[in-house]
Amino acid sequence: MKSLSTSLLLAAGLIYGLPVLAQNNAPQEGVNVGKMSIMRKIVPSGALEGQAAQQYMQTMQTAQQKRELAPDNHPQVIRLRAIAKKMIPFALPWNPRAKEWKWEVNLIASTQINAYCMPGGKIAFYTGILDTLKLTDDEVAMIMGHEIAHALREHGAERAGKSMAMSGAAKLLGIFAESKGYDGNMVAGIAGTAGNVAMLKFSREDETEGDIVGMDLAARSGFDPRAGVTLWQKMGLVNQKAPPKWLSTHPAGEDRIKEIRKHFPEVMPLYARAKGVSLANLPPYRSNVKGIPDVQ
């Protein structure tokens, strides 16, 4: 496993001329998703990143033992790391901690349609998502940007903090109910269930935020954010039996596409600038799968 050099990334940041950090740890132009949730402060980020690094290492070691970890010279590993190398410099302004992360990108042989970025910049793709969806580089960048956004916005720490707060509130409600002569355990259980439903909503919001920030990262890196539309159209073709929207941690595909399109005015100028062409001269984005229309 090779770690992308932090010093190289910082140097690249100077070359690309990254914008000064805004008060909400986001670039001054492009998308605006506001400040990060204060709930993430309940769980120390450093501790979560340490746990993530250990878990990531164990996952890679297990994959290597099973001969499922793609070697450094695998064409798809080279491809993924090249895309990450372009994107990571633009990720740094979103979170000051990202400058200290030991970024890694690895590929695991599996039919799973999955990819993730753990706190601390530990990225993994599964061959299933590359092969099943026949991903273009632009679509890979949209997925990678989305997953990196989760780490940058500290969604893991935020969810852990919210979960702890929900659990504590349920217990307090149970104690209060007992003081009033009610069944405290039953009340706490009902409150806990309601909390779990609320957490699903929080997760969907995190997924939407990941899409939006991921678009920004992809566009700045020279990858077409319109690929987010074709990506979710492809996902819809292989995910016909999705769970009901209100019980899913992910927004429905059509909702994601609408949200992605809504932010084109913010990100397409960034993409055009990265490609060195005028916005008016950008050709439509063309999918590599028949039946999926061009995206204007």
Results as ranks from 00 to 15, higher is better:
residue 283 P to M: 09
residue 128 G to I: 10
residue 120 G to K: 11
residue 257 I to P: 05
residue 91 A to K: 08
residue 141 A to V: 08
residue 281 N to G: 03
residue 105 V to D: 12
residue 69 L to Y: 10
residue 260 I to R: 11
residue 22 A to T: 15
residue 15 I to Y: 06
residue 221 S to K: 04
residue 158 E to R: 09
residue 24 N to K: 11
residue 86 K to L: 02
residue 170 A to D: 05
residue 64 Q to F: 05
residue 209 E to H: 04
residue 295 V to E: 01
residue 178 E to D: 09
residue 167 S to N: 07
residue 166 M to W: 07
residue 27 P to V: 10
residue 107 L to G: 03
residue 217 L to H: 10
residue 233 Q to V: 06
residue 230 T to I: 11
residue 234 K to D: 02
residue 51 Q to L: 14
residue 41 K to G: 01
residue 92 L to I: 14
residue 126 Y to G: 07
residue 23 Q to V: 04
residue 169 A to R: 10
residue 247 L to F: 15
residue 12 A to S: 13
residue 59 T to L: 02
residue 212 I to A: 13
residue 229 V to H: 08
residue 223 F to Q: 12
residue 123 I to N: 15
residue 213 V to A: 11
residue 66 K to G: 15
residue 236 G to R: 12
residue 38 I to C: 00
residue 276 G to E: 13
residue 67 R to Y: 08
residue 70 A to N: 05
residue 263 H to K: 03
residue 279 L to F: 07
residue 155 H to Q: 11
residue 37 S to Y: 04
residue 137 D to V: 05
residue 185 N to P: 00
residue 120 G to E: 04
residue 95 N to E: 13
residue 3 S to M: 10
residue 86 K to H: 11
residue 109 A to T: 10
residue 228 G to Q: 02
residue 45 S to Y: 15
residue 233 Q to N: 14
residue 262 K to C: 02
residue 88 I to M: 14
residue 257 I to S: 01
residue 14 L to P: 00
residue 35 K to A: 02
residue 128 G to L: 08
residue 222 G to R: 12
residue 272 A to V: 09
residue 242 A to W: 00
residue 201 K to R: 06
residue 1 M to E: 08
residue 244 P to Y: 05
residue 83 I to C: 00
residue 284 P to R: 06
residue 256 R to I: 01
residue 159 R to H: 04
residue 232 W to Q: 00
residue 175 I to V: 15
residue 94 W to C: 09
residue 67 R to Q: 15
